[in-house]
Design a protein around this nucleic acid. Sequence first.
DNA 1: TTAGTTTAGTGAAAATATTCACTAAATAAT
DNA 2: ATTATTTAGTGAATATTTTCACTAAACTAA
Lengths: 202, 202
Amino acid sequence: MSLSNNTIERICRIYGYLEYLEKNNIEYASSKEFAGIVGTTDYSVRKDISSLGLTGFSRRGYAVKLLKDQLGEKLKLSRTIKTCIVGLGKLGTAILDYESFRDDGFNMVAGFDSSINKIERIHTPIEVFPVGQLEDIVKQRSIELGIIAVPPVAAQDIADKLIKGGVKGILNFSPVRIAVPEEIVLHNMDFTAALRFVAARF
Amino acid sequence: MSLSNNTIERICRIYGYLEYLEKNNIEYASSKEFAGIVGTTDYSVRKDISSLGLTGFSRRGYAVKLLKDQLGEKLKLSRTIKTCIVGLGKLGTAILDYESFRDDGFNMVAGFDSSINKIERIHTPIEVFPVGQLEDIVKQRSIELGIIAVPPVAAQDIADKLIKGGVKGILNFSPVRIAVPEEIVLHNMDFTAALRFVAARF
DNA sequence: TTAGTTTAGTGAAAATATTCACTAAATAAT
DNA sequence: ATTATTTAGTGAATATTTTCACTAAACTAA
Ligand SMILES: NC(=O)c1ccc[n+]([C@@H]2O[C@H](COP(=O)([O-])OP(=O)(O)OC[C@H]3O[C@@H](n4cnc5c(N)ncnc54)[C@H](O)[C@@H]3O)[C@@H](O)[C@H]2O)c1
Ligand SMILES: NC(=O)c1ccc[n+]([C@@H]2O[C@H](COP(=O)([O-])OP(=O)(O)OC[C@H]3O[C@@H](n4cnc5c(N)ncnc54)[C@H](O)[C@@H]3O)[C@@H](O)[C@H]2O)c1
């Protein structure tokens, strides 16, 4: 019962929508509605959900709160995941300060930068450290997920350090390919590739 | 000869890598090398490239400059694409100031925000306008691609205005589903979904 | 009660995507 | 000159994903 990346991606989007529905006290939603949200068909949504062994209700659809909890359970999203960000430049500070991540279950517990100047000037409730302490802090605080927002040249080095510290996954915003061992989950957010992906389909 | 989204996505990533190779005066690269970059197999890369009617050279691979130009031609990426950003908050200003986009063929020609205060305070070589002028400026300057970095509640309204102004595609950073007509290309950059996509595969 | 409607569940069919197995070309090595 | 090696090109086989067609359940309305 291994899930395809497409299924995981769709479920993650649905999960976000379920949170929204829950906040708005909506109790049921149909596969068709989810399909609209993630841009697929109701068949696919039902297949995705049932492939996790979860079920809905005839004529009412899926129970929002129940499904959210069950999906969270299955995909290990309901627990809070300790996260850090490396590179506190323009993009990094935007991410550092983005408060919704906490609601979404990602607890930003540290920021790192190589510039002491920057670290001293930064004004945020989150603790920030010089990059030299990266590995230690990641270990100490059991940080599971690292976000990379350093210039491309530094990205591989930072990834290596995050991995030594023990992170299980990396979200990389720098536009370079990073090499990681098998067991580490890597996902790239390549803005330029995304812009091209749009422009290529005009 | 319509390309799948997977193919387009891979080609966009390869295109970025070709730019890097070109800058470093590397003349040839193999399908295997591209496969490593985009995380697929050499077979798939060759299929992708040949599905566009493009070819390489036995025993040398693909000619970097030639392939880049040809892919650029086929996917309409070689021309410069006029782009604007709406919402000049933390994320929006980071994107506004990100200079690599220009090298990558995206010319940021305008920024918009609803806060006059913000517009007056912003310090950037790119022209910024109150959001009331959005539709007109997009028309006047023939902006083809709009980036949305406003709070979720405003996202649909901004999308509607961008479309009225005539953009062909939208890159949406707000974590909500936006409705657009068939002919408009929409792509969502949902950071939370990306974090979840990583965490779900730990 | 009965007929109609909505929506989930699901095996089968169809469509799509990937991988394989093989050919051919170019070059290097012996 | 011959053999070996590397790498692209590609039709066929395989695998995966999506869609379809149908069933069943739950509820509504007549
Ligand atoms: N700003 C954007 O909109 C944008 C868009 C797409 C991609 N990116 C990518 O995101 C990354 C960050 O972009 P940015 O605009 O914030 O750049 P930036 O220059 O504003 O910030 C980079 C930060 O990284 C720090 N840094 C440099 N080397 C480091 C190291 N070895 N360890 C720790 N910190 C280090 C710098 O001190 C700086 O604070 C870059 O890779 C960039 O290509 C940015
Ligand atoms: N900061 C992040 O790291 C981050 C991460 C993920 C998603 N996002 C999303 O990106 C968007 C922007 O985030 P941010 O952190 O930059 O927020 P922000 O509050 O810093 O900036 C939002 C900006 O939009 C402007 N704005 C509000 N309504 C507008 C309207 N109708 N027209 C034009 N401008 C308007 C505001 O004046 C402000 O400058 C949000 O949707 C947010 O959810 C941000």
